[in-house]
Amino acid sequence: MERMYEADIKSLQEEIGALQHQLENNENMVTVSHEGPMEVVLSSLRGKPGTEFGKKDMVENLVLELERLEGHLSQQERINRIVLTDCRVKTLERNKSKFVQQHRLSGYCCHLAFQVEFELTEFQDPTASNSVTSLNVVVDGPELREISTFVSRVEDDKSLLLFFRTFREFSERCEHRNRTFMYFKDKYPNVVCLPEGCRADAMTIRSPKLPGCTMNVVWSIDVSKEGLVTPRLELLAKMPEQALSLDRKNVIKNAPDFFQSLLRVVGVEASIDSLIKAVSME
């Protein structure tokens, strides 16, 4: 009982931390966009009658161009489902045959943040294809464990594009898991417990009347070396020995298999929901 409360407290504290962070960020954004010179410049420039004709035209053109590009950028973010927050480019080498630039990008996809540093070599010879000559990837958060093997593989092969294709799918799957866990935690706060936080891969269902009897839903998201993302759900039932010996019809023993068939028929959300209902009815 105490353990469940403690786990609850931990996960709530985590969530509060994340929310506070988000709130701070929001406030920062407000201050940046209100005190930052950019907004002042942009809005004060709109419809401002300039003194010199040439300069006014130039400024107006710049503003128009900037507005067009920013619109384009947000369109690009929407379709790529990746937001880049920072980007630094450094030229390392430039000569007749090749052009080497180092790029440092940070951004996020769903709630997963990443930092990527890579060197891109562009050859002047049009028949030669550009190549990535070094790649470093940093991914933060509890999900790292599930994607780390894949990350070291892409770093070795320098597969920049493959990383982003897989990372996008992976983070969308993670967000789905996170949302689903949170939904059940909110809906059944006294039965469902997230012992390792809402971004981890496990959810515990405790029978309110039978302490000691727990069901663990383990929802792992596998990423293969070649970048295939496959979610896998499993049910692990934990019962005291005494209770197991009373289970003559092998309900507990067969529960994981039943859960698998349920998943195939009704899908993730409905399966977990009916599982929780069954446990809390007991």
């Binding site: 400024v59 920013e70 379709i79 990746i82 880049l84 990527v116």
Partner: peptide, 21 residues
């Protein structure tokens, strides 16, 4: 300031292109 912002946005757009957007 405008030119600086413009080049930043251009860099971001190019980065989207480079990562396979």
């Amino acid at each position: 300031l405008l030119t600086a912002r413009l080049s930043h946005v251009k860099n971001l757009l190019r980065a989207h292109h480079l990562i396979g957007g």
